[in-house]
Amino acid sequence: KFNKELSVAGREIVTLPNLNDPQKKAFIFSLWDDPSQSANLLAEAKKLNDAQAPK
């Protein structure tokens, strides 16, 4: 279960257009550290992506 959630969340995070590479890497490392938090980490990444969207 975690492997699928981890890969789905990881793929989504790397495609978020408004995150820079260090931010993406930080989220990916957090996913590896605790795969059970993949849904929460993906939600946080999406929030940050939205907040950094060009206005």
Rank of each mutant, 00 (worst) to 15 (best):
F27G: 00
L16N: 01
F2Y: 11
A45G: 02
L42K: 02
A53G: 08
L42M: 05
A39F: 09
D34N: 11
N40T: 14
K1T: 11
K4W: 13
Q37N: 12
V14P: 02
Q23F: 03
P35W: 04
G10P: 02
A45S: 02
Q37P: 02
A51M: 13
E12A: 10
V8W: 14
K25Q: 13
L19I: 03
G10S: 14
N3M: 12
P54S: 08
L41Y: 04
N18F: 15
D21P: 11
Q23I: 05
W32N: 05
E12N: 05
Q23V: 03
N40Y: 13
K4V: 13
L19M: 01
S36C: 07
A51Q: 11
T15P: 00
Q23K: 02
V14L: 15
F29Y: 10
P35N: 03
T15A: 14
K47M: 09
D34G: 02
I28D: 01
D50K: 08
F27N: 00
S36F: 06
S38H: 12
E12R: 06
S38R: 05
A9V: 15
N49G: 01
Q23L: 03
P35Q: 03
K4R: 11
L41R: 02
D21C: 15
S7C: 15
Q52C: 08
D21L: 11
R11A: 10
E12D: 06
K25W: 15
R11N: 07
R11C: 15
E44W: 11
P17H: 05
L31P: 00
S38T: 12
L31D: 00
D34Y: 05
A51P: 01
L16R: 01
L6C: 15
W32G: 04
S7P: 06
L42I: 09
S30A: 14
D33K: 14
L31T: 02
S36D: 07
S38M: 15
D50Q: 10
R11L: 13
R11T: 08
A53M: 08
V8C: 12
L41T: 06
K47L: 09
K46R: 13
G10Q: 14
K1Q: 12
P35H: 02
V8D: 14
V8S: 13
K4H: 12
L41W: 03
A39Q: 10
F29A: 07
V8L: 13
L16Q: 03
L16V: 00
S30W: 14
E12C: 12
N3I: 13
I28W: 05
E44C: 14
K46M: 08
D50R: 08
S7E: 13
Q23D: 03
R11P: 02
P54N: 09
N18E: 02
P17R: 08
K47Q: 08
A43R: 10
Q37A: 11
A51F: 09
Q37D: 06
F2G: 08
F29I: 08
D33N: 13
P54K: 09
R11Q: 10
F2T: 09
L48W: 04
Q52E: 04
P54C: 13
L31V: 03
D33P: 00
E44G: 04
A39V: 08
A9Y: 10
D33A: 14
P17W: 03
I13H: 01
S38Y: 14
L42C: 03
A45T: 01
I28G: 01
K55L: 13
Q37M: 07
L31H: 00
Q23P: 01
F27M: 03
K25M: 14
E44N: 05
L41K: 03
P54F: 07
L6E: 04
N20T: 15
D21Q: 09
N18L: 01
I28E: 03
F29Q: 09
R11M: 12
Q52M: 07
K47W: 08
D34E: 06
K24V: 05
L42P: 00
S30F: 09
L19W: 01
P54L: 10
L6S: 05
K25I: 13
P22K: 15
N20A: 09
L41H: 03
